[in-house]
Each structure stands twice: as C-alpha cells, then as structure tokens.
Amino acid sequence: MTFPVETVRVTSQLFPPHVQQALDLIGIFVFALSGGLLAVRKNMDIFGIAVLAEATALGGGVMRDLVIGATPVVAFTNLGYFVTPLVAATVVFFLHPEVERINRSVQTLDAMGLGLFCVTGTVKAHDYGLGSVAAVALGMLTAAGGGVIRDVLAQEMPSLLRWDREIYAVPALVGSSMVVVLIAAGHLTTATATASALTAFVLRVLALKYGWRAPRAWHRNGSRTSEE
C-alpha cells in the first residue's frame, strides 16, 4: 500500500512504525473482544462471533479508508490486522465467562483504543487532503464506527446513540479536535498526539466511573422530557 509523501512524513513523526503497529494491534484486539462478547450474548455461533469481532475491530478504519480513497484498505493489506480479531474471537469462544468477569478492565482498554484511533484516524484523514471538520469526523468514525457496525449487525440500537450509555463519541470528538488544532498550529508531535489520545482516554474512563451521559432533548418550557 502506498501513501502520499506527506502522510508517511507526518505519521512517522507521531510514532515509530513498530510502536504504531503494536498499539494498533492492542486496540484492535480489545475492540474485537467487545464484538465477540456481544455475539455470545446474542447466542451466535462461532462464525457470528468472528464476524462481530472483525466488524468491531476493523469497521471504523475500513470506512475511513474508503472515504479518503486509501485503497486497498490497510485492514486487508496487513495480515496482522485481519488475524488479530480472529484471535480475540477464539478467546471469547472458549473463555467468554472469564472475559465477562473482567469486562471493566476490557472497557478501560477499549478507552485506550478509542484515544489512539481517534488521533491516528484524524491524522490520516488530514494527510489525505481533508479539511479540519472532515478530519475530525473521520477521526471519530475510526474510533467509534466499528461499534456502530457491531450493534447494527446484532440488531441493536447503536450504543453510540443511546442516552442511557456513558458518552463515547464525545471523548473521541475532543481528542480529534485537539489534533486538528495542533496541526493548524504546527505543533503536532509525538508528545502532543499522545496528550490528545490520553485526553480522550481519560474522558471516557471518567464517563464510565461517574456515569456521564449526553443530555437529552428539553421541552420549550425548560423542563426535561419525562420519557425514559
């Protein structure tokens, strides 16, 4: 897979290739665990577990690459990216009770993946010539798109859109926005990119701990809607 010169230059400034690869695979593995667990809850067979694991782990990145024209998409040119969700699906297939018991830890690791992918997704979109707003949107898509695909395949309302779930898109939005501001100011470095990812991670972890949720619609008289 070939990238524009600017893409290679900026990406290499953020993380060394081997570090980027390791971080990507960790994030992909954890995202895949959440997809596999939902498949188990839905009583799917091993094929369904594998499909949801792959969709959750790679879906956001695949959609981003298709939008920006980075084809063939990296999920299918890097064997490790494609095989890692299958490893996670196998773990879930045999050890799902144990994985469920450490679900809080999985959610924390998922928050790390959210922070990483919203940053790298935003950078890649920007490097392919998209403006700041579009880059932020694709950064969010990279981080959260797989979860939306997972929920749709499982015939559930995407958790991203449910008011009774802790905020997920907002931390990604903050992290992606920080990246485009840093790019515009000429201060995007490994340290500042890491700070952006950590900001998204911390916001997500705090949301999980304190139950932060996005506000719902209000009536014109200022009273909140009563429907639960």
Rank of each mutant, 00 (worst) to 15 (best):
V136K: 09
V133P: 05
G222V: 13
A144Q: 06
M112S: 06
V180A: 03
T90A: 14
R224N: 12
S176K: 04
Y81D: 08
V179Y: 01
T90D: 01
T142D: 10
N78E: 14
A191W: 07
P4D: 06
A75I: 02
T90V: 10
G129Q: 04
M63F: 09
H126W: 15
R213Q: 08
V106R: 05
N103E: 03
L153R: 00
L33G: 08
L23S: 01
V123T: 08
F3A: 13
T108A: 15
H219C: 04
A195H: 00
Y128Q: 13
A125I: 04
F117Y: 11
Q21F: 15
A137C: 14
A143P: 08
S34Y: 05
V99F: 09
G35K: 00
F15Q: 00
G115W: 00
N221P: 12
R224I: 15
F76V: 12
A125L: 10
H219D: 10
E100K: 15
G145D: 03
L203E: 01
L173N: 01
T108G: 14
T108L: 13
T77E: 10
I102G: 02
A144D: 06
T122P: 12
V180I: 12
R64H: 07
V87G: 09
G129C: 07
A135G: 10
Y210W: 15
T77A: 08
L188V: 09
A143S: 14
C118I: 01
R150I: 02
V8A: 15
M140H: 03
D151A: 00
P158W: 02
V51A: 05
G80F: 13
A135V: 02
I183D: 00
K209A: 03
A172H: 08
A134G: 09
V181F: 02
W212L: 14
R162G: 05
I167P: 00
K209R: 12
P4A: 11
P72S: 07
T189D: 06
V92W: 14
